[in-house]
Computed example of a mutant assay.
Amino acid sequence: MTFPLRWLWWLPLLLLAQSCSTDFLPASPASTQTTPVAGVQGMASYYGARHHGRKTASGERFNQHALTAAHRTLPFGTRVRVTNLNNQKSVIVRINDRGPYAKGRIIDLSAQAARELNMIRAGVVPVRVERLE
C-alpha cells in the first residue's frame, strides 16, 4: 500500500502558516508587565527527574531541587506564589521555563515545589497563582 505524494501539496502551505503565527514570539516588555495573573486559578502539574539537567527555555539548566516553574506567558525571573487549593499550602517559585504543554494546566512546577505543596502523590492539583512584585 503506497501513499500518493500528490496529496501532500498542502503541507508546505500548512508549515508556512504555522511559521507566520505570533504565538511563539516573545511578548514585548510592556505587555508582560500587565499580564493578569493575580489570583488566577487552574490546574498545576510538576516535572522532575526526566528533565533534570536539560536546558530550559530561559537557557539555564533545569534543577528539580530548585523552586522553579514553567509558565506560558510570564517573563523569565518573575516570582509567583502558588497555593494548593486542596490543602492551602503555598510556595514561591521563579519562572524559568515555558509550558505547561498539557491541555488545561496553567503552571508546571519543579519536583521540589511540588513536594512543598504536598502534590507529588496526586500529580495534578487545583492551584491559585499570584504574581509577586
Rank of each mutant, 00 (worst) to 15 (best):
I95V: 13
L15Y: 10
R81P: 03
K103I: 06
R79C: 02
R72S: 11
G48I: 04
T73P: 04
G48H: 04
T32R: 15
S21K: 11
L16Q: 01
Q18C: 12
P100F: 01
D23K: 13
F62K: 01
Q88L: 11
K89L: 09
V37Q: 13
R50E: 09
V82F: 02
T34P: 06
R81A: 07
R81T: 10
G42W: 01
S28G: 11
N63Y: 10
V129C: 02
R105Q: 08
H52S: 08
P126A: 05
T2M: 09
V127M: 02
P12S: 07
G99L: 11
V37K: 05
C20W: 15
P26A: 12
A102N: 09
E130Y: 12
L14G: 08
S58G: 05
L5C: 08
G123E: 03
V124W: 05
L117W: 01
P4T: 11
S21Y: 14
A30K: 15
T2H: 15
V125C: 04
K55D: 10
E116Q: 15
V127S: 00
E133Q: 10
G39L: 12
L13Q: 04
R79S: 03
N96H: 03
H51I: 11
P36Y: 06
E133D: 09
N84T: 04
R72E: 10
